[in-house]
Nucleic acid binder design. Sequence first.
DNA 1: CAAGATTGATGTGTCAATCTTA
DNA 2: TAAGATTGACACATCAATCTTG
Lengths: 147, 147
Amino acid sequence: MNQPDGAGRGETSVLTAVLGAAGEIQRRLDAAVDAHGLSLSKLGVLEALVARGGTLSLGQVASALQCVRSNVTQLMDRLEAEGLVRRAADPGDRRGTLAVITEEGRRRYEAASRAKSAAEEALLLALPEGSRGELVQLLEALRRQAP
Amino acid sequence: MNQPDGAGRGETSVLTAVLGAAGEIQRRLDAAVDAHGLSLSKLGVLEALVARGGTLSLGQVASALQCVRSNVTQLMDRLEAEGLVRRAADPGDRRGTLAVITEEGRRRYEAASRAKSAAEEALLLALPEGSRGELVQLLEALRRQAP
DNA sequence: CAAGATTGATGTGTCAATCTTA
DNA sequence: TAAGATTGACACATCAATCTTG
């Protein structure tokens, strides 16, 4: 079992290829964003905030990032320490806390976002335009498979 | 910027698709392996050990897992606490430490490995055989792009 | 000095338990 | 009782610093 993974009968190399490509994408995007002192997670928070006018409840941020609430709590701690976001009390619900992006947060978002987009464009150059549709098709099939 | 991501001019949806598919693969494989009380990382260590006769230096494990040495140190701590691997002094180099798989480790490896393979097979069902070659081709192109 | 391993700090994610408010 | 947020504990990964040995 577990052939050299390339020409064996098992042919699990497709999965390896997907994992490897995803890893490479992440490394590239992370490097692009890191050059502006952000991580993909932090940028994700800023992105969600900017997309919704600059303010969101922490729960809404968690939904946007598709992660758990306690994760957002820590992410906010770090972003707040860097002055990119601040917490504010929710006037309508005293249990709630709002995340509000700062001016500095917006600047950093703009810069990092542009760098990320550039890295994305660069990655896309590797894929002939005509093939992208089919690629997406196949990958969606992989993802949307019944449990 | 940042269109709905599907039909926009930017067309970054390919990257999203790769990331999404990879995430799904990871979730499935992790769930399969978790059912046997292992993580993909821990299984990776056992896999490397079994593939090389049951014993490897910690540095060799790090190379096999493509990770940093200090990561292996912690992984070993947990695996040793579970009785799946034990540390042994390297007789040929007194700086070195060897990782040796235990009988229980081998049993767990066998079970988890089978479950992982089954999950892989299940995932592959989503991909028509004829398309796999091209898919791998495209993904490799994405990964092997010049910096 | 360089190599092997460990330690401590940090980032990112999870879960379970808890506290406050609805 | 539910919901929103936090806390504490853990898994996993990295880096920088350290200790032992080559």
